[in-house]
Structures are given as structure tokens and as C-alpha cells.
Amino acid sequence: METRDLDRLFARARADASEPSAALVSRVLADADAVLAGRRVPVQPRRRPGAGLRALWLSLSAGFGGGGVLASLGAVAAIAVFLGYSDPAGLGTTLGAGLGGDFLITMDATSDAGLEIVPVAEYFLSGG
């Protein structure tokens, strides 16, 4: 066989290339979809402004047992600061009465010392 014949044979074979069957195309595309589905990475949510602060608040409130608890603690702290600065008269008497007179905290609201917290040694020594 001559080279010319061979070249004609090649040309005919190139022209004769048959198309893949519909079944094969379906199988190949099903593979593509399956690979894509198995690899798909969840879309990351877009971050909104202030999202960091909100996340911090949620984290803190969760640690303290919820937003309500944290808000209550904040309110108590604010009252304590207010009492410390405002130094209201008769506060020691009120607290003493509330504890039945055996209170461990001496408070002299009228003196310059302001709020004074002193452990009472006698209380411990007497076994009370």
C-alpha cells in the first residue's frame, strides 16, 4: 500500500468519527454532577457590619446563662456604684436590720470613711 492510500484512509477515518451515544453522554454528565455534588463547598455567609460585636455579646451572654442574667448583673453593678458614690444616710441601719443585727459588715455612713467593710473577729471566736 502506498503512502497516498494510507493518507486517504486516515482522512476517511477522521471524517467517519461517530458521535458518542446519548447513553454515554448521560453517564459522563451524571459523573460530573456527582463529583460536583460531593465536592460542593457551602457558601460562606456574607458578614454584616457590627456582626463581630453581636457575636461577642452572644458569646458573653451565653457564658453567663443568657442575656437576661447578664443584664441583671449589669444592673446590680450599676446600683452598687451608685450607692458607693451617693453615700445615702441610714444605709448601715437598714442593712443591719435586714441581717437581724448580727451583721458582719459595719457601715458608718455618716463618717468620712464612707463604706467600711471589716470582718468581726468576735463573731468567729464566739462560734456564732
Binding site: 458521535e19 458518542p20 453522554v25 459522563v28 454528565l29 454532577d33 460536583l36
Partner: peptide, 21 residues
Amino acid sequence: YGRGDALAARELTARLLPRVL
């Protein structure tokens, strides 16, 4: 396709499958 475009797979299949077959 690598970024998740399924339509790109269809076009690539149309281009390459007849040749590789």
C-alpha cells in the same frame, strides 16, 4: 466546572468526549 458550574461540564463533554472516545 471546578468552581461549581455544572453547565461547563456539559460544554466540556461536548468538546472532548467524541475525541477521547
